[in-house]
Design a protein around this nucleic acid. Sequence first.
DNA 1: TAGCCTGAGTATAACGATAAACTCAAGGGC
DNA 2: GCCCTTGAGTTTATCGTTATACTCAGGCTA
Lengths: 340, 340
Amino acid sequence: MATLKDIAKEAEVTVMTVSNVINGKFDKVSPATVARVTEIARRLDYVPSATARSLVAKSSRLVGVLLPASESEGIFLSSHNVVVIGVIERLLREKGYYLLLRGISAADGVAGTLKSWNLDGAILIGFLDSEIQNLRATFDTPLVVLESYATHVDFMTVRLNDRDGGYQATKYLIGNGHRKIAFVGTPMAERGVDRERYEGYLAALQEAGITEEPTVIPCPAVSHAMGVEAGMRLGQKFPEITAAFATADQLAVGLIEGLYSVGRQVPDDVSIVGFDDLEIAATARPPLTTITQNLKQKAATAVDLLLHTIQSSLDQPQETVLDVKLIERKSVRNLNPVVP
Amino acid sequence: MATLKDIAKEAEVTVMTVSNVINGKFDKVSPATVARVTEIARRLDYVPSATARSLVAKSSRLVGVLLPASESEGIFLSSHNVVVIGVIERLLREKGYYLLLRGISAADGVAGTLKSWNLDGAILIGFLDSEIQNLRATFDTPLVVLESYATHVDFMTVRLNDRDGGYQATKYLIGNGHRKIAFVGTPMAERGVDRERYEGYLAALQEAGITEEPTVIPCPAVSHAMGVEAGMRLGQKFPEITAAFATADQLAVGLIEGLYSVGRQVPDDVSIVGFDDLEIAATARPPLTTITQNLKQKAATAVDLLLHTIQSSLDQPQETVLDVKLIERKSVRNLNPVVP
DNA sequence: TAGCCTGAGTATAACGATAAACTCAAGGGC
DNA sequence: GCCCTTGAGTTTATCGTTATACTCAGGCTA
């Protein structure tokens, strides 16, 4: 790898002059020298050393994308995090930043030696409240938090309007004539999103004047298998239910299968609305009506927020709430009489 | 951030002595000094600067994971690449390396300024032959290539035994009494894996003495929608076909739906075997019999190969072919008469 | 007692780049 | 003719670490 020194020797100037040319500070250098140095740099295929630069500059142009890692399995990338990370990567790249991907395991001294890279900032995805506090204490760089289940925010956060998601899903079911609507999820969990979604669900019920006790099928995990189990339970123990709102698409897809296995069809017997709009939602049978989030917008907001904070060095707590909307597919049956 | 200098000042020794303590070179330092310096380092929460280290050392402890990026959409992470990257991340982390995730777009000056980080090595996932040649020319560090569609290999590669996969899938269908078996994929494409799988398919047919011209449904893209289309075509134009081998699970799942839409059921009317064992294979209806690959093994092999090459600095072309196996689910019907 | 080794450091230079201060000749104003 | 400015660089110091060579006092050997 060619260095400034190599170019300087060949061009018979000092490294400083070459540095000035490379960085476009032409007011210090004669046009003839600029041309000569530029040509030599191109010929030697010169690329400035990022490590040397970040040593002298305050900035490393390195952004961490941090995810929780279990001891045995490493990081987990859910299918929407995959999209989010893809968008983050592209935006950072376009802006001249580099992405350090890193799993943070609990045992790992919180962030281990990650500090050594002098990150300009980091995006945290999917951590619990306490973990975020730890990370925040370790890094003095700007941090943006995504997919946080945190209850109180004293850092930059981007999250969905989960409450409105629950509300829209439930209202849609009600609009299709359903009144016995189950909630499939964990309203009381540490997973704050489900609590919010549950509140939206309740609000919609109340607005429609549905006063009976809501039916909740708790799901301690978010997985297909859990959904199947929930579906079987729902089908067998709650025959009066005509619709369900599931707080995750994996659950919703499992639900369809669980219901089917106990002889109940979706949407003919039970209607379902999911949440997340994962790939499986579109390809499920029937295709799943679900709450969709603008993942690209989420990622872009996070990157914008982070880079803006890095550049202005004003790191203020701030919460950005993104809209969600319902996307209509074929998992809900309209119970309303047809108006002629 | 505390530096060696800060510690040195407080311990009243030179930075060199501190450096020796930090790096465990105790033969140069008295036990008393070791204790004192260690304590101060801990108290100041010292972490060595990776940038400074990689400037002086030859090694940066940084490994690139490079993926193709389209101009508009950024990198694409298929669901098995997600698993692969997760495992790569964990293994690198355990070994003290850091992962730089980076999309490479064609327009991007091949690898742009990525060289500036002085990567110790890189893992390339999913590039075309020509792109790999370009990247190889840009980087003088060890490279391991995964999911390559390359036809000839003059670098380290880890790939599946695609031919055997095609063979196993087809043989399984034959074993279940099928003789009219379609191939759904692109045998002639640049995508070399399909060609291999096609060869395995042909080999199995031949072995079973099936001599009729094979039925091929070409699929220029690998997507659910493409599969649906193929399924409709298959169902309508080839009513004699009782089974199909699809070279990707997305195609297979689409196929099920396409067949269904023209009135043919899987597995009752048509049996299907897929390839890849994506998450959607297990949750499809019916659950898809498919060819599965050991993704963790693939990732681990790549990391081992890379780190070993980095440490021994012996970069030799080498091809590692991993076994695949068929995983039996419910998308194949047994046509054999039941033996009493 | 001169010479030598050893333990415990220190001093210097280097990695690649940049910021800031300095040099030094030519040209301009009055 | 003298002083000041300007253009086109150069010099020096610095970022945080590490490798290598050096110092220097005390103890040991012959």
